[in-house]
Design a binder for these strands. Structure first.
Lengths: 143, 143
DNA sequence: CCCGGACCTAAACTGCGGTTCATGTCCGAG
DNA sequence: CTCGGACATGAACCGCAGTTTAGGTCCGGG
């Protein structure tokens, strides 16, 4: 086997992702590692691909939890197939499109609200979202 | 003066915003209050409008810090003019449009990346954003 | 054998937008 | 005057996506 394993430092340097982040991803179950007798991490080469996928997905706004779910279908130490990429891409595209549409709806509502001079409670859809518009920004969500 | 002041409970009920949030907004300087001799808050009626503006702006994704900057142009205890709404609306629209465009670019890049079969480091623009794409998702930002 | 750099862990901290809690005060109705 | 509900404060906590810190271990070169 010439498929040399990577230390965390090597994976960090090659991927451009901080070692602390890699350990964090492992805690969250997004990547996996073997341990040496001295308890050090050794990564399979395919982990590089996994990390690439994680970063690419994050850059389009996916939360780690969702990325983790999708990566759950991809067994550890198996190079991701082309089909996997394609399916994931479709999934992400749908998500992004949904978010874009939502933002467009909100923008239109805002200008409409300003235009009509309302922006007071009880009348204004923006102020009283009620429906799926709620819980947009970051902040504490209750379980 | 029949312009009765509001207690925090009244403002909370009328605006639908929790009293804890109203205190928080006040700490952050987004709204203001007078104090009674017993140290209780009394809000000017126009505060209702301010809170409406805050919630509407939040619903389109604006962070409180930016909302606070804009509200800073609006003196306390003065009803916001129509011109103020219009200018704020334009400002927010520009912001939202910028965010939508950014998301569209990212979506396109992602599908392109998947299509070309790359998604590895050094070649992939998604994985190595470098430019304005960086720092998208939530999470700790360093100063 | 010793040294330094790479690695390990757990715990605490970041910023955002608040909520919840503990403890104490105010105020109006009866 | 007393009681309860509304109000006050500061501190701790939530989720997210990590980073930083403190203190300890591993490993290879000289």
């Amino acid at each position: 086997m010439i498929t040399k394993e990577l230390t965390i430092g090597e994976l960090s340097e090659r991927s451009g992702v901080a070692a602390s982040a890699l350990r964090f991803y492992e805690r969250e179950g997004l990547i996996h590692s073997r341990r040496t007798t001295g308890n050090q991490r050794r990564y399979h080469r395919t982990t590089l691909r996994r990390v690439a996928f994680i970063r690419a997905s994050q850059s389009v706004g996916m939360p780690l939890s969702v990325i983790g779910e999708v990566l759950g279908f991809l067994p550890a130490d198996v190079p991701p197939s082309r089909e996997f990429w394609v399916r994931a891409s479709e999934c992400w595209s749908r998500e992004i499109n949904a978010r874009i549409e939502k933002m467009e709806r909100m923008r239109d509502r805002f200008t409409e609200c300003i235009g009509c001079g309302c922006l007071s409670f009880e009348q204004c859809a923006l102020v009283n979202p009620g429906d799926e518009l709620a819980g947009q920004g970051p902040g504490a969500r209750r379980l």
